[in-house]
C-alpha cells in the first residue's frame, strides 16, 4: 500500500511540474542586486564612480589648470571588453561620462559618433538655417585628454563554486603628445556558489 501511495504521489508530482507564475517587483536603480554573479549595473556604477574620483584627485589636473589656466577637456574613448562575459561597455562608458561631467572639474566633449551627427546637423544648418541662428563649422572644442581602458577577468573554479576576478584598467592619455597622465585600476572579486539542486 505504501509503495503504491508513493508511486502515485511521484506520478502526480511529475505531471504537475513547472506551474510557476511570473512576478515583477520594481527596485531602486541604486539597490545592489546580484543574481548570476556576472558583471552588472552595480559593478559598472561602482567602478565608474571610484575611477573618476581617483582620476580627479591626482596631480595631473592641478598641473594642467596651473599651466593652461582652464579646466582640461576630456573625452572617453574605447573601453575594450577582454573579459569572459558579454559586457556592454557602452553603459560603463556612459557612467564614466556622467561622473566626469557631474564632477564639474573637467570639460567634456562628445564622442566621435555623436560629433559626426552634430557635424551633419551643422552642415544642414549651413544650407537651411537663418544667418542669425546658424552655427558655424570649425568652432569645436578639441579634447586635451582621452580616457581609454579595458576590462579583464580571471576565473577560477572548483565544481559548482567559482571565483570571478574582474580588473578594470583605465588610463588618461594626452592627445597632444601621447603622454599618459593617469592610470587607474579597480579590482572586484566575486565568489559564486551555484546550487547543485533545483526545483
Amino acid at each position: 500500500m505504501k509503495i503504491k501511495t508513493n508511486f502515485c504521489f511521484a506520478m502526480i508530482a511529475a505531471l504537475m511540474l513547472s506551474a510557476c507564475s511570473t512576478s515583477v517587483e520594481r527596485l531602486d536603480s541604486q539597490e545592489q542586486v546580484d543574481l548570476s554573479g556576472a558583471w552588472n549595473d552595480t559593478d559598472s556604477q561602482l567602478v565608474a564612480r571610484e575611477m573618476v574620483e581617483d582620476a580627479l584627485s591626482r596631480a595631473w589636473i592641478t598641473k594642467f589648470v596651473k599651466q593652461e589656466g582652464t579646466e582640461p577637456v576630456v573625452i572617453v574613448g574605447r573601453v575594450k571588453n577582454l573579459s569572459h562575459e558579454h559586457i556592454n561597455t557602452n553603459t560603463f562608458v556612459a557612467n564614466m561620462e556622467r561622473e566626469l561631467i557631474n564632477s564639474g572639474e573637467v570639460q567634456f566633449v562628445a564622442s566621435s559618433a555623436a560629433r559626426k551627427e552634430i557635424r551633419d546637423e551643422r552642415g544642414d544648418q549651413d544650407l537651411n538655417a537663418s544667418e542669425a541662428t546658424r552655427k558655424e563649422m570649425g568652432q569645436e572644442y578639441g579634447a586635451d585628454f582621452m580616457m581609454q581602458g579595458q576590462i579583464n577577468t580571471i576565473i577560477d573554479m572548483d565544481g559548482s563554486t567559482q571565483v570571478r576576478f574582474y580588473q578594470v584598467n583605465l588610463e588618461l592619455v594626452s592627445i597632444k603628445d601621447n603622454r599618459k597622465v593617469w592610470i587607474g585600476e579597480k579590482k572586484i572579486k566575486k565568489l559564486i556558489k551555484n546550487s547543485k539542486l533545483r526545483e
Binding site: A10, M11, A13, S160, S195, R198
Partner: peptide, 11 residues
C-alpha cells in the same frame, strides 16, 4: 539545468 532536480529525477 546543470543542477539536479529532485522532482524530475523522481519522475
Amino acid at each position: 539545468l546543470e543542477a539536479m532536480s529532485v522532482s524530475e529525477t523522481a519522475a
